[in-house]
Amino acid sequence: MAPPPYATGPERLWHYAFRLLCGLIFVFLIGPILVIIPLSFNAEPYFTFTKAMIEFDPEGYSLRWYEDFFTSQAWLGAIKNSFIVAFFSTILATGLGTLAALGMSSRHMPWRVPIMAVLISPMIVPLIISAAGMFFFFSKYHLTQTYLGVILAHTALGLPFVVITVTATLTGFNHSLTRAAASLGASPARAFFKVVLPLVTPGVISGALFAFIASFDEVVVVLFIAGPEQRTIPIQMWSGIREQISPTILAVATLLVAISIGLLTVLELLRRRGERLRGLTPG
């Protein structure tokens, strides 16, 4: 975008300087994430670019850290655990959270603000505090070092994301659409499935994705309440960074970035679909 035609000389200069500044900030945001991708293909056990890598010598690159990852029992176990925990906690969080969002977006809901404050609090309370509390409380009922304990904890942590996303979708929901459906002869059930559900589903799915990633990336609570049986990918990474730092971690990090890109793409598609269904088009 060019500067406006009425801009004076210094203003033009500022305009381009500002663009440059923003460009640098974007580099700061995205650069570090991009840097690890080539580093994960390093043939040497270093965390930096070797001479061979800079000269684009094929010898400098290898898949050895990926091989390491996919053949290690510890990592494979961690992948399994991460998916088990994230899967069940996402289902629980999405179910409970969607129901609650339906209630919270009703005009007739009493004490809306204080209840919302409680529902969102797992996102606000420092993880270390939630983790300590859950450790104390869950150990009384022998829930520490069990899958159930970790799943319940992650459900609690994922819930705010579902509640916020689905409530936001429902707040933007135009209720005259259901009335229009009814006036055209649809039964309430038909109106719900044909009109309400398609409009709300993108919100529910993005809420579920948030809950999934919240569980999938969570370290602190698992660190406190999980046993050796429930080691997840983040825990494995955490101990990898602290103990024997090897580029395998960079390979894992690259795979996790790929997962994030996948999720982000799905979200973006959902957002566009939602806008299209509401009759909004990107300008």
Partner: peptide, 28 residues
Amino acid sequence: RHRLKAVLLVTPLFAFLLVAFVLPIMDM
């Protein structure tokens, strides 16, 4: 009736959070 419906929808989550989150914090 509407209010009751809204409250009933929120109750399961609220109860869950009470047990899995609020009580642990109280414990701490």
